[in-house]
Design a binder for these strands. Structure first.
Length: 330
DNA sequence: CTGGGGAAGGGGCCC
DNA sequence: GGGGCCCCTTCCCCA
């Protein structure tokens, strides 16, 4: 069974009047990894907020009533490009939209590999905070992934997932012929056995184009292709950044920083149209949509636009008939 | 019921 | 590789 941390789902928010969401309290964390936080204690101990970097969203001091520039009149109707510089992909239908981990039951990240084989002391999981995939793989099929080398040595081989029994006996004998070295076409390392080369190419060769290592979270079923991504994810379980005021824990320092603003009342982001201030930049961005006649999300059926995807989804589900195949308006 | 605000989460990117 | 930040998204609450 999984060695999960004890997570207490608070029934109410009495311990923090500002919270609207249930709070996960890690009561015990067996083999708790080191504090992966950057400087959470510095943040909470000092109680001093780091300055928010200036941006296009014009942060202002918490209690400043003066504005650096008069609000433009009247509000521009189309979203300012400075806020939406990206080319957005088509919105995902909510039924397929990703959900946050604490709500999700099914893993969002299917394993990259059918299996991961441990390689002894040099294992990437030597860090106690990182665990090997807790899904014990099915019996390892030798040659489950094998490279097919092209004639041109400068080209990377393709990988095939042919079952082991598909390899002809003569092929195996060829691969194990004494004196024959199996060289990695990507990095040049040679191995006495084909399986050695195969393992190298699957899990160690950074130059290769084959599948890379996978890093599995020991607290849930998510799998990442990089150690950094896994470490970042693990913080969502360990929640190393703790608010000294209410005790709520967060995965990242800047999340805690934003939370502390809910206590201090600091709202560094102000709307240039109505002068309303927000503690969160994204909330200001959403607010700016309310000043626009043509909003970000439009119904493909009736062309009505909405400031939020959730509103469009409700609209579509409410009988417009257009479904939730929303399109963003720019 | 709808629309908006508040709070928070995650991945990605840049330094 | 890690930290900080950005952006998007989601959920909850309220008017």
């Amino acid at each position: 069974m999984l060695d999960m941390p004890v997570t207490v789902m608070a029934k109410n928010y009495s311990h923090c009047p500002l919270k609207k969401r249930p709070v996960h309290i890690l009561e015990e964390l067996p083999d708790e990894p080191q504090n992966l936080s950057t400087k959470p204690e510095d943040l909470s101990r000092s109680g001093r907020l780091t300055s928010v970097s200036p941006s296009s969203l014009s942060p202002v001091s918490p209690h400043s009533s003066e504005k650096t520039s008069p609000p433009p009149s009247p509000p521009v109707l189309s979203p300012s490009p400075q806020f939406y510089p990206k080319v957005y992909p088509p919105p995902i239908s909510p039924e397929y939209a990703p959900q946050t981990w604490h709500r999700s039951v099914a893993p969002l990240y299917p394993p990259v590999y059918p299996f991961v084989e441990y390689m002894g002391p040099a294992s990437p999981y030597s860090d106690s905070s990182l665990s090997p995939p807790h899904h014990h793989p099915p019996p390892i099929q030798p040659l489950a992934l094998r490279p097919v080398y092209p004639a041109d040595p400068s080209l990377s081989p393709t990988w095939t997932a042919s079952p082991p029994h598909s390899a002809a006996p003569e092929d195996l004998s060829e691969k194990r012929r004494p004196g024959v070295r199996h060289q990695c076409p990507d990095c040049g390392k040679s191995y006495s056995t084909f399986s050695g080369l195969s393992k190298h190419r699957q899990f160690h060769c950074a130059a290769g184009e084959g599948p890379k290592k996978s890093f599995s979270c020991k607290f849930c079923e998510k799998v990442y292709v990089s150690l950094g991504a896994l470490k970042m994810h693990i913080r969502t379980h360990t929640l190393p950044c703790k608010c000294t005021i209410c005790g709520k824990a967060f995965s990242r320092p800047w999340l805690l920083q934003g939370h502390i603003r809910t206590h201090t009342g600091e709202k560094p982001f102000s709307c240039t149209y109505c002068n309303r201030a927000f503690a969160d930049r994204s909330n200001l961005r959403a607010h700016l949509q309310t000043h626009s006649d043509v909003k970000k999300y439009s119904c493909p059926t009736c062309s009505k636009t909405f400031s939020r995807m959730s509103l469009l989804t409700k609209h579509a589900e409410g009988g417009c008939g257009g479904g939730v195949h929303a399109e963003k308006v720019y």
